Computed example of a mutant assay.
Amino acid sequence: MVMRDLNIGTKVGLALLNDRWYALVLSNLTDQPADFMLLRRRVRGLGTLKLLTVLAKMNQLGLVTEREHYRYQLTTTGLELQRSLQELEAWGNRAITAMH
C-alpha cells in the first residue's frame, strides 16, 4: 500500500511539535502542578499572552489541565506525548552522532 499523504492524526501531532512553544511548554511541565509564572520564566522568550494561548490549546487537546490559581500540569495524554518527544530527541541525538 502506497501512502500518498499523512493521516490527520499525524498532521496534528507534527503541527503541535513543530511549533517550538508547544514543545517547550510540553518539556517543562510534569504531572505535578506548576505555577504559571514559574513556567513563564522557564520558557524564555515566550510572552504571557502567547503562553496563555498555548496552554489553552493544550488544554483543549487534553494535554494539560489547569489547577487552582493558574497552576498547570500534564495529563496522562500529555505525559505520553512528552515521552514521545523525548524518544524523538533521543533518536535525533543518535542520528547526529552516527553522522560524525
Rank of each mutant, 00 (worst) to 15 (best):
L81A: 00
M99D: 05
Y22H: 11
R67Q: 14
A90L: 13
T97D: 08
T77L: 15
Q73K: 15
E89Q: 13
Q73W: 05
R83A: 07
L26D: 00
K11R: 14
L17F: 11
V25P: 01
F36M: 05
Y70E: 11
R42N: 12
A98E: 09
M3I: 09
L46K: 04
I96S: 13
V12G: 03
K57E: 13
V64D: 03
L88T: 06
F36H: 04
L74K: 01
D31N: 08
L29I: 07
L63S: 04
L51Y: 10
A56R: 12
M1I: 11
R4F: 14
F36P: 00
A90T: 09
A15D: 04
Y70N: 08
T65Q: 12
A98N: 06
G13S: 06
I96H: 08
L51W: 05
T77S: 12
V25D: 01
M1N: 10
I8G: 00
S84Q: 13
Q60F: 07
R94I: 02
Q82I: 04
A34D: 05
W21N: 04
D19G: 01
R4E: 15
G47R: 10
E66D: 06
A56E: 14
A56Q: 13
R44N: 06
L38S: 14
A34P: 00
K11Q: 13
Y22N: 03
L79E: 09
V2M: 08
T97N: 06
S27K: 15
T76A: 15
V25H: 09
G78M: 01
L88C: 05
T53Y: 11
P33C: 02
H100Q: 09
V64Q: 01
N7Q: 07
A15K: 11
L63F: 15
L49G: 05
N59H: 08
L39D: 01
S84M: 12
T10S: 14
N93K: 11
L26T: 00
L24I: 00
D5M: 11
V43Y: 08
L52W: 10
Q82G: 02
L55M: 04
D19M: 03
L85I: 02
L26I: 03
L74H: 01
Q82C: 04
D19L: 08
L46S: 01
T97Y: 13
P33R: 06
Y70A: 11
G62K: 12
K50N: 09
Y22S: 04
L79G: 09
E87M: 09
M3V: 14
N7G: 07
R4Y: 12
R44I: 04
S84H: 10
S84F: 12
L74N: 00
Q82L: 08
L88S: 13
L85V: 03
Q82H: 11
R67L: 08
L6M: 11
L79C: 14
L51R: 03
N93R: 15
E68P: 00
T10M: 14
E68H: 07
I96F: 12
T10G: 10
T48P: 08
Q82K: 15
A90I: 03
